[in-house]
C-alpha cells in the first residue's frame, strides 16, 4: 500500500511538473486587427480594442453588426458584447490555436467547437 502511494506520488509529481512546465502560446495582437470571414460570418477587430460581428446570411450589414470589445491575453481571446438596452454584457472566451496574417483559428473550450477565419 505504501509502495502504491509512493508510486502515485512520484507519478503525480512528474505530471504536475510536466504540466506546469508546458509552454503557454502567445499571439500577436497586430495580426488580429482586420476583418475576418468564416462563411457568411464576419468579425472585425479594430486596433482600439473594439470590434463588430455580423452574419450576412441574416441580411445584416457591417454597419449593423453587433459591437464588442476584445482582449487578447496570450491565447485567450475574450469578446465582451455590450447590450444597448442594458448595462449588462455578454462575455465569450475563446482559445486561439492559430493566428497568422491570413488565418485565425480559435476554440470554444466549453463546447469544443473550433472556428476558422480567413483574413479579408
Amino acid at each position: 500500500m505504501k509502495r502504491i502511494s509512493l508510486y502515485s506520488a512520484i507519478i503525480l509529481t512528474i505530471i504536475v511538473t510536466i504540466v506546469s512546465c508546458a509552454p503557454v502560446e502567445s499571439y500577436d495582437e497586430a495580426l488580429l486587427i482586420g476583418k475576418w470571414k468564416s462563411g457568411t460570418l464576419y468579425y472585425r477587430y479594430d486596433n482600439t480594442g473594439s470590434g463588430a460581428t455580423w452574419d450576412t446570411a441574416d441580411d445584416v450589414t457591417e454597419a449593423e453588426g453587433t459591437k464588442f470589445t476584445w482582449v487578447l491575453d496570450q491565447s485567450d481571446l475574450t469578446h465582451i458584447l455590450q447590450m444597448d438596452i442594458s448595462g449588462a454584457t455578454v462575455t465569450k472566451v475563446y482559445t486561439i490555436t492559430k493566428l497568422t496574417s491570413t488565418t485565425l483559428e480559435y476554440k470554444d473550450e466549453l463546447s469544443g467547437t473550433k472556428y476558422t477565419f480567413t483574413k479579408q
Partner: peptide, 21 residues
C-alpha cells in the same frame, strides 16, 4: 432579463444578432 436582437420583416429572429443576459 435583458435581451436584444434584430428581426426580419416577419419578426423572425436574426439569431446572429441575438444577445441577452
Amino acid at each position: 432579463f435583458a435581451l436584444e436582437t434584430n428581426m426580419d420583416s416577419m419578426y423572425n429572429l436574426k439569431k446572429s444578432t441575438l444577445i441577452g443576459a
